[in-house]
């Protein structure tokens, strides 16, 4: 399967986590990386181009830091403009039918905060409900997020590396169609899926 990563970070030069994650998948065969803030610094999104890209891929990943329990602004703009009625949903809106989609999120809060009764009161899946339902409306298969929690405590590349490796293995598995989608759909996050993957997945990155 072909994977499209729609990546959004407004100040990547200051990022510790996403910068490393994104570097980890940049050269992965079968993955197309779109750096939205770099493409559209003034938010003038090229809708036709984005639609072509969507059509050409099977798995759509929204990678972003968690900002105010949601995504950075450009992803919202992207949704508003690209997911046109009559194309993505509504009558004849079948362009995205059957595609798989999920978020790859880094959060400041730890996993324990994203629980009922936790500091942030809701689970990640609950907070990402708008993405879930958007996917549903567009006839897509929504999977739970891949999460890097407590990202503010990851001080340097060494700390981030295990997460980056996991992320890379996850995407590589999607490319190779090695994911049990039906099972994954019921999890809270995609992270356990990575643990079940066989070790020998594609070219090793960051293991030197």
């Amino acid at each position: 399967m072909k994977v499209l990563v729609l990546f959004a970070h407004p100040v990547l030069e200051r990022s510790r986590v996403n910068a490393v994650l994104v570097d980890a998948i940049r050269d992965l065969p079968g993955v197309t990386l779109r750096d939205l803030y770099e493409e559209y610094p003034t938010f003038a999104i090229d809708v036709a181009r984005e639609k072509t890209l969507l059509s050409a891929h099977d798995v759509i990943v929204f990678q972003h830091p968690f900002y105010w329990y949601s995504t950075p602004a450009i992803l919202k703009e992207w949704q508003d403009l690209v997911l046109e009625h009559g194309w993505a949903y509504g009558e004849n809106g079948t362009a995205l039918h059957g595609k798989i989609t999920f978020n790859a999120v880094t959060t400041g809060g730890p996993a324990s905060a994203y629980q009922r009764g936790g500091y942030n009161r809701f689970t990640m899946r609950e907070l990402l409900a708008p993405y879930d339902q958007t996917a549903n409306l567009c006839g897509m298969r929504y999977l739970p997020p891949f999460c890097v929690h407590a990202s503010l405590l990851l001080d340097d590349e060494r700390d981030v590396m295990p997460h980056a490796r996991a992320y890379r293995r996850l995407l590589a598995a999607f490319v190779a169609d090695n994911i049990d989608v039906a099972r994954a759909a019921n999890l809270d996050t995609l992270n356990p899926v990575v643990d079940d993957l066989p070790e020998d997945d594609g070219p090793g990155w960051g293991r030197e």
Binding site: V11, E13, Y37, P41, T42
Partner: peptide
């Protein structure tokens, strides 16, 4: 080396 958004 600045990001597009930052430059803008």
């Amino acid at each position: 080396g600045a990001r597009a958004r930052t430059a803008h």
